[in-house]
Design a protein around this nucleic acid. Structure first.
Length: 229
DNA sequence: TACTGATCATTC
DNA sequence: GAATGATCAGTA
């Protein structure tokens, strides 16, 4: 195994895109080789493998901090698993849902908005019929929400946060929200955290995360291809 | 087949 | 424990 290559943090969006172009078209086997690491036999015990290796290869700096991956650029990196038809097949995790100290929180300073302000989407083949080593990295695209897109994200966020601030978290299912949804985001069902119930009393609950529906990430890819064809 | 609810690894 | 990186897997 060759030694790990240290990739320095990109200083501009064009440097970041140039880094992304260097891995576009590689198979996961080639990506692993380039990173000097072994490709797991399956993702069952390595669910974040692709995302973490691509972060490393593009020079991301935020590690697991609640910050955009490229702090200096304010750009978030997201891999986008594609199905056989080339469409996103999984929802995209955005950030943790604030269950405490969330009064007076507005869309403008929310983590969701900060993270989605500028995103580098890196498509990766994820069709289970393709063996892991043969799956390929796609061409990355840099994206910001259009005003109509942001309006819907904002509406989703405000409706969901209103339920949370008023102690109705347990009423929220993954069916709420047009493009944003809230789902559990935890190590397991026993990893609880604290929130407040409708009476303002502390209550234990599962940590939650905001996720983007595949219907939304599909429109992002669609719009991009429509403008670049 | 899409979607929801559950889960895995790592870092700090 | 709580944040990051996500995919798994049962079922509607």
């Amino acid at each position: 195994m060759p030694p790990k290559q240290q990739i320095s943090a990109p200083r501009s969006e064009s440097e970041l895109l140039a880094n992304a172009r260097r891995i576009a078209g590689l198979t996961l086997a080639q990506l692993a080789e380039r990173a000097g690491t072994a490709l797991p036999d399956s993702f069952h015990n390595a669910k974040g493998w692709v995302g973490q290796i691509i972060e490393q290869q593009l020079g991301a700096t935020a590690s697991n901090l609640p910050e955009p991956d490229f702090q200096y650029l304010g750009v978030e990196l997201k891999t986008l698993p594609l199905n056989r038809q080339g469409l996103p097949q999984e929802t995209t995790y955005v950030c943790t849902v604030p269950l405490l100290d969330n009064e007076g929180l507005h869309w403008e300073n929310s983590w969701v908005r900060r993270k989605l302000q500028r995103v580098l989407w890196v498509p990766v083949e994820a069709d289970k019929q393709i063996p892991l080593p043969q799956r390929r990295i796609g061409t990355a695209l840099l994206w910001s929400p259009t005003p109509p897109q942001e309006a819907i994200l904002r509406q989703d966020w405000e409706e969901l946060m209103e339920l949370i601030v008023t102690g109705r978290l347990e009423q929220i299912s993954a069916r709420h929200g047009t493009w944003l949804q809230i789902r559990p985001k935890a190590a397991n069902a026993k990893a609880l955290c604290t929130t407040y119930d409708a009476d303002g009393r502390p209550a234990e609950t599962l940590p939650r995360g905001f996720y983007l529906r595949t219907a939304f990430t599909r429109t992002i890819l669609n719009d991009h291809y429509a403008n670049h064809s």
